[in-house]
Amino acid sequence: MIEIHLILLFMIAAAIVAVEARDLLSSVVAIGSVGIGLSLAFLILKAPDLAIMQLVVEIMSLVILVRATMRQDLPFSMSGRWVFNTFSTVLFMCVFLGAAYIALKNIPLGGGDFGIASGVYLREAIPATGAKNVVAAITSNYRLMDTLGEVAAIFTAVVGVMAIARRVGRPR
């Protein structure tokens, strides 16, 4: 799995650039490249649905982020307890990565077998639902409640943004 390692290293490098760049527009473009790398990783990990979805979602959020960062500067201040805060954050990250190393030490990538539900879905997708794409069979037949919640969430987001960004309000 050398490809996935290379893509992950590229994503980490682009994420560090996105975090540390002084210019907000450069940072937004860097987060776009992180999303494209994630789309490639999904394609390599045999999830073409998610690759398409990640690509279009990335472009959409990139357009809206560029709209949000037009003509605006980036303040950079080092006041406060800068050293202490950075040290504690890095310490927490080291503890987190150490615990993750201990927990994931014996788990190989792509090794194990999956649970009962996935086996049932893979076996009975075509006879029970008629869908050749098993992921679509799960999201639109077996777990339709999930998709209903997803649509409710995006509908709530639309209503919320239109309520936040409304133009009528108190007169200025």
Binding site: D49, V56, A131, K132
Partner: peptide, 25 residues
């Protein structure tokens, strides 16, 4: 095509909807 092809290939309603929104943008 993307949104109606979801049952036989990669795709789905969400990806098609985002492509529609991007074309209007």
């Amino acid at each position: 095509y993307i949104s109606l092809n979801g049952h036989t290939g990669p795709g789905g309603g969400f990806a098609g909807g985002v492509i529609v929104a991007l074309s209007f943008v």
